[in-house]
Amino acid sequence: MCVGLPARVVNVKDGRAVVDASGAQKEISAQLLEDLEPGDYVMIHAGTAIAKIGSDDEEETAGLLDALL
């Protein structure tokens, strides 16, 4: 329902941001997120950054599984 793409913020200006995913760059809307800075990682959906990404998926899932045991 909602394909998301993790991408790195390259620059931010006036509610728009250029993001980079493995070398592919695209300008998207950054209006939903405050205080975005170059270097932040965000989740992109339909041309909009919908969330900041806190950590790497391997790291996070390892932590979640450890908590189960």
Binding site: V3, L5, D20, A21, S22, G23, A24, K26, I44
Partner: peptide, 12 residues
């Protein structure tokens, strides 16, 4: 190539 992966990721 990484950038091809990136473009494919953006467009599914």
């Amino acid at each position: 190539q990484d950038s091809v992966k990136g473009v494919c990721g953006m467009l599914g």
